[in-house]
Design a protein around this nucleic acid. Structure first.
Lengths: 346, 346
DNA sequence: CTGTTAGCGCGTTCAC
DNA sequence: GTGAACGCGCTAACAG
């Protein structure tokens, strides 16, 4: 049996309450007493039983996820993962809720954050929009003692406690590297489709992609970036026009959403191209299987949600997080290592 | 607040003990009473608080991992992950131990399993060797009520409760697909290095690799498989000889261990080759960064260990496991999406 | 067959 | 400053 608070109390010659005060770093303990207790803790190798502690506290953690609304499949997948995690909320003593706001709408995001703070949530996870209103809302949360993590798209430089998502520069590099190798010495230019350069993750991916492509042995021309606003219809039009206008097109990298439009355009005329996109969804999975898409770069939404919950709980309790363990990997999927379809769609 | 056993007792008009008997499916309850309690459980939407239950039981789960000994870096990494998971054993009420046995030694593995059963462990995770002794030992564990999971290399057809590892046929296909695409229309033959065809995972990887290569648009000759017995020295010799004897060698796939020998041989003369190997270790990481290796296929040892623990605990409690959640993914790493080096070495 | 009671390890009033 | 006692949700003795 491992040591309990009783053992420590006995070892240190004090009562349970005093041990508890020392353990939770609360006032009302003399320095000498505290030292005695700490010595006992160290010598016995005590580790607190978190489950029992939570049981005693009977504390619940209301956590809110603020996500962009709309039909972006990745975001809807993220939402589904939050709901799924909510099923386990019982055992984890956490109560999860999702709030959706218009995409790229900084004011709406800030409002949602303020509402959450007012409600007294114990943590906020949000897909950050790069705007001053959001910086300010994060600061207000900080003042209110509510931890904030950014999800998928970061806002470094703000007061957010943690970022949960992939290294987007590395993601772009990975795409460029794969594109270069898959194309080999085949001639032709490459097109890049983005959502909007106004969000950080897209900008970072582009940066990494261009760097990797230019480092390839075979120099290759990259067409000016197409901005599809993550909108399927606009993306379709941009790609269709591009396919018509660029006879020697060799590859396409879509670093944003809007895959549906891209795939629709490729269905018309899209063989022989090297196509690399982000996010494994029902659509991209199908296109990977049928050979229309060559590779999908993915961030696991389920991992991200669970990581956000762990981090927010830890921060709410004032604990430190193991950054290495919370790092989100960039998955490379090709037709052959595609995992079986998940419950929502993956 | 969610309902507790007290609420159920009140709702059903019985005592706590009766509720507990029904919940844990223990005898000594009349059919009518049982039905009443079950109705109350359903109507209140009760879900048991596992943490509290474990606390009350103060049960511990002694789990044993049986791994091949020797300097196979992947296996040592697995062992390190078990030790790391052991640090959390406190909170999970699990006591982890590792036993190493000579690699490919079925009798030693069977003995270790019998010893574990005799010790009264509540679960066994083992890297399976494909032999009758092991089948028999698994059956004995089953009779003793001790759940068994196979790790990394499966033994389907045996009585093992679960397999934790990657789909090795898909892994081979993935390697073949990447090899084919990376080589493109470059001419040359491809060599395959294996440990031993006597273990299932190696056989399955080869099968997948050959299938994928033959499905490529450019037909390419594959040299006869080299069996390095997962031994660095033998692997070195085989590859060095191959490099000398095959002037038009274009690529090498190592589907087993022994990467150290392979890398040593490549250091002598190994530029311009497409090299794909398994398992991300300190060695393969370095070779990936320096460009000697083009891709590493990996199974996350940490995930595997944690999955094994979850599955064994569930089986020990007679619970069902969510197979989809426990599936181990095949990671593809290239230079650009390499995660930061982990605590042990990755 | 069913109910009572005493903890599991910890946090938290309250008194002293 | 410090300590005793109760309860979190559940299980397991022991009565009845």
């Amino acid at each position: 049996m491992r040591p309990t608070v009783h053992d420590i109390a006995a070892e240190a010659g004090v009562s349970l309450a005093t041990v508890d005060r020392v353990l939770n770093d609360r006032p009302g303990v003399r320095g000498v007493t505290k030292a005695k207790v700490e010595a006992a803790i160290a010598s016995l190798g005590y580790v607190r039983d978190v489950a029992a502690a939570n049981l005693a506290k009977s504390r619940v953690y209301p956590l809110v996820f603020i996500l962009p609304e709309g039909d972006n499949p990745f975001m809807r997948g993220l939402e589904a993962e939050v709901r799924r995690a909510g099923l386990h909320s019982a055992i984890e003593r956490t109560r999860l809720s999702v709030v959706t706001v218009p995409a790229f709408d900084a004011a709406a995001l800030a409002d949602a954050m303020d509402a959450a703070i007012a409600e007294g949530v114990s943590g906020i996870a949000a897909v950050a929009v790069d705007a001053l209103e959001v910086f300010a809302a994060i600061d207000r949360a900080r003042e209110a003692g509510v931890p904030v993590v950014t999800l998928v798209s970061d806002l470094s430089g703000s007061g957010r406690d943690h970022f949960i998502g992939v290294d987007n520069i590395a993601a772009g590099r990975t795409a460029g590297s794969l594109m270069g190798r898959f194309l080999g010495n085949r001639p032709g230019r490459v097109a890049v489709l983005a959502g909007s350069m106004r969000v950080r993750d897209h900008g970072e991916r582009l940066e990494g992609f261009l760097a990797a492509m230019s480092a390839m042995p075979n120099a290759r021309a990259i067409l000016p970036v197409l901005e599809g606003q993550d909108d399927p219809d606009l993306s379709f039009k941009l790609i269709a026009d591009c396919l018509a206008a660029v006879p020697d097109l060799a590859g396409i990298y879509n670093l944003g959403a809007g895959n549906r439009g891209l795939l629709k355009a490729l269905a018309v005329r899209g063989t022989g191209l090297c196509v690399i996109v982000h996010e494994l969804t029902g659509e991209t999975r199908g296109a990977l299987e049928s050979g229309v898409i060559d590779a999908v770069l993915n961030q696991d939404a389920g991992h991200e949600v669970r990581s956000a919950i762990r981090v927010l709980r830890a921060k709410a309790d004032g604990l430190s997080v193991n950054a290495a363990q919370e790092r989100i990997r960039l998955d490379i999927f090709i037709k052959d290592n595609l995992p079986p379809a998940g419950p929502d769609e993956e």
